[in-house]
Every structure is written in C-alpha cells, then in structure tokens.
C-alpha cells in the first residue's frame, strides 16, 4: 500500500502531461485560462490589459531565457550521453542514475525546444562540446564534474526566476529547476562531497546551506566555458 502510494508520487504520469499542457499544445488556451483563474483576480491586469508591444517584449525576453536554459540542457544531455558511451561507469546503481539523469536532461531539451517554438522563437543549435579531457581523467573526475555541473544548472535556473515574465514559462522553469537540484544533491552525495561547507561554491549537496544562491548568466557561461569546443 505504502509503496504503491509512494510510487504514485514518484511516477505520476499525469505530471508530464500536465507539464506539456502547461507549456502549450492542444489544450494551451484552456490550460492557461484555468491557471490564471487559479491565481485569483489580478485587478491591475483586469483594469489595464498590457499593450501589444509590451506582450512582444515580454515574449522576447522569455525566449532569451529559454534559449539560455536550452543551451545548458544540451550541454548536460550530451555529457551524460558521452559518459554512458565511454563505458567508464561499471557500478550498476551509478550507471542507472547516469542513464536516468541523461534521459531527463534530454526531455528538458525537448520541452524547452517545443516551448520556444510555441512562443514563435527559434531554438538555438546544440553547442559543440568538449568533454573528452574530463573523460580521460577517469570515473571519479567524470562524476565530480557531473556533480558540479548540476549545481551550476540549479543555480542558473534560480538566477533566471525573476527574469521570466510569463507565469506558464515560470512554472515550467520551476518544474525543471527542482529536478536539477535533485540531480545535484544526489551526485554530490555519491561522489562523497557530503553536504558541502554551506558557504557557497559548487561542491556539496547543500553548498549554500539552507538557502540556495542564484548565479548570473555571465557567471554560468564562464563556468561552462571549458566544456565548450
């Protein structure tokens, strides 16, 4: 009983459906309507609908954030792909985690690409990556890099929360953000970094202690630069 209930929480297939519905697609209009209704009345918006130019600016601004996120997800997805292909991971438990995380990042790539298209934008191309030097260092370095990159990803999403204009896009980003955080915590524990010092940085399952810190786009792009060809 208990296990099945927990599995339900874990594997609820409707969450994915709801997510894509939230982003747009067949039920986009009705989903958005329901979503906004659930937010309660917003007097300001009701009184003065935003001008068309403002809507366009907000849309463009969200597209920029989404394409930035897409770049990071491409990077993560490709890293896991190369790690699995390298055959470095022998431990079954770690291998299954890497596979699962990689699939998840790929789903993030697809969801973000679809969202960008729905908003009338053009998804960026996948960046050319450079993970071979990391792979050459062996399993430990690979897993540590994964742990660091996931901490980076979580901080990157957190850094964008306030920049997103659309509630639907924000909800989508949040749904991904907490998954990156889960990946980050799990990998940091697995590589033996423990909770971290709580003082910041990208090492540890709780590197900032009780309150996660955001990272700016500039800082994130600088940190991932070694992995870009």
């Amino acid at each position: 009983m208990t296990d099945s209930a927990l599995r339900e929480i874990a594997d609820d297939p409707s969450s994915r459906k709801r997510f894509f519905k939230m982003l747009g697609g067949a039920g986009a209009v009705s989903a958005a309507t329901v979503f906004l209704a659930a937010c309660g009345d917003d007097d300001d918006e009701a009184a003065a609908p935003p001008a068309a130019s403002e809507v366009k600016d907000n849309n463009n601004s969200d597209l920029k954030v989404l394409n930035y996120a897409l770049t990071l997800e491409f990077l993560e997805a490709d890293f896991y792909k190369q790690v699995i292909a390298s055959g470095l991971v022998k431990d079954a438990k770690v291998a299954s985690l890497a596979k699962k995380f990689g699939q998840t990042e790929q789903e993030h790539v697809e969801a973000l690409s679809a969202t960008i298209k729905k908003l009338g934008g053009k998804p960026v191309d996948a960046p050319k990556t450079k993970f071979q030097p990391t792979l050459d260092k062996g399993l430990k370095a690979v897993l540590e890099t994964a742990a660091t990159v996931e901490n980076l990803g979580a901080a990157a999403y957190l850094g964008q929360a306030g920049n997103i204009k659309s509630k639907e896009v924000l909800a989508a980003a949040l749904a991904i953000h907490s998954v990156e955080a889960r990946h980050a915590a799990a990998l940091n524990i697995l590589v033996g970094r423990g909770f971290g010092d709580g003082k910041g940085g990208l090492e540890g399952a709780l590197p900032d202690g009780a309150f996660a810190k955001p990272m700016s786009e500039a800082a994130v792009l600088k940190a991932v630069k070694p992995f870009l060809a």
């Binding site: 979580a154 999403y157 957190l158 929360a161 949040l174 953000h177 907490s178 998954v179 955080a181 889960r182 990946h183 980050a184 915590a185 799990a186 524990i189 399952a205 709780l206 900032d208 009780a210 309150f211 996660a212 810190k213 955001p214």
Partner: peptide
C-alpha cells in the same frame, strides 16, 4: 526559489 531548491535537495538525499 532559493528555498524550494533546498527542499528538492533534501528530497533527493532522503530518497
């Protein structure tokens, strides 16, 4: 966002 990220990390560690 800052707090939910930490809750998600907790969830992963407990799991």
């Amino acid at each position: 966002g800052s707090i939910v990220q930490v809750e998600a990390r907790h969830a992963a560690m407990i799991r």
